[in-house]
């Protein structure tokens, strides 16, 4: 008789646990696309600072290898707008302000990768002179991606025979 009682108690305990398990409804969520680089980078950006880098001097270990240009000419007025279409794909860009034209004032842009690369290679904004994006007019490496702080750093590098000789490190803050 005692054994039957233990059996019934164990059965009730098992059933009570089973009932709770059955009540839990697993929520697998709905599908959300990962955030692309163009989502992070599109919009209006304004210059925080700009530094010119002498790549030849830097490689040779000579000083000075950097020159702070922010307070020269009208670099503080520099702004750039990176436009996207309804699907978030890069379209055109336009530079505003009266800063020296270190690259084309307007044109079209794309990205060499939609997502950050795992090998650490900085994603690159490719600049074009035509809407079909066949005439590349320059490229800007994204050396610091916007995150919690709406700031981004771009690096424009000029090369001669594929050897970098000068670059511009441009720090921007998002204004819209």
């Amino acid at each position: 008789m005692k054994q039957i009682k233990y059996f019934i108690e164990s059965l009730l305990l098992f059933l009570s646990v089973f009932i709770f398990i059955r009540c839990a409804d697993t929520d697998d969520g709905s599908y959300v696309s990962p955030i692309t680089i163009s989502e992070k980078t599109n919009g209006d950006w304004h210059l925080l600072s700009i530094t010119q880098i002498d790549e030849t001097a830097k490689k040779a270990g000579l000083n000075p290898s950097e020159m702070f240009l922010t307070d020269q000419f009208e670099f503080t007025t520099f702004g750039i707008t990176l436009n996207v279409d309804v699907d978030g794909n890069p379209t055109s860009y336009a530079v505003s302000g009266n800063a020296p034209d270190i690259f084309n004032e307007q044109g079209y842009w794309s990205l060499d990768t939609d997502f950050p690369q795992t090998n650490g290679t900085p994603p690159t904004i490719l600049l074009y002179g035509d809407a079909a994006k066949t005439q590349q007019a320059g490229k800007l490496n994204i050396t610091s991606m916007p995150g919690a702080t709406p700031e981004m750093e771009l690096k424009l590098t000029r090369t001669s025979n594929n050897v970098p000789f000068v670059s511009y490190q441009i720090k921007l803050t998002k204004t819209n």
Binding site: Q52, I53, D54, E55, T56, A57, L62, P64, M67, L69, Q72, F73, P100, I102, F103, R158, S160, F165, V166
Partner: peptide, 17 residues
């Protein structure tokens, strides 16, 4: 006296110090 950068193009900023 030095010119910056060591190599320069017409698209750049020349700094004479």
């Amino acid at each position: 006296l030095y010119f910056f950068p060591l190599k320069i193009s017409l698209n750049d900023i020349l700094v004479i110090s």
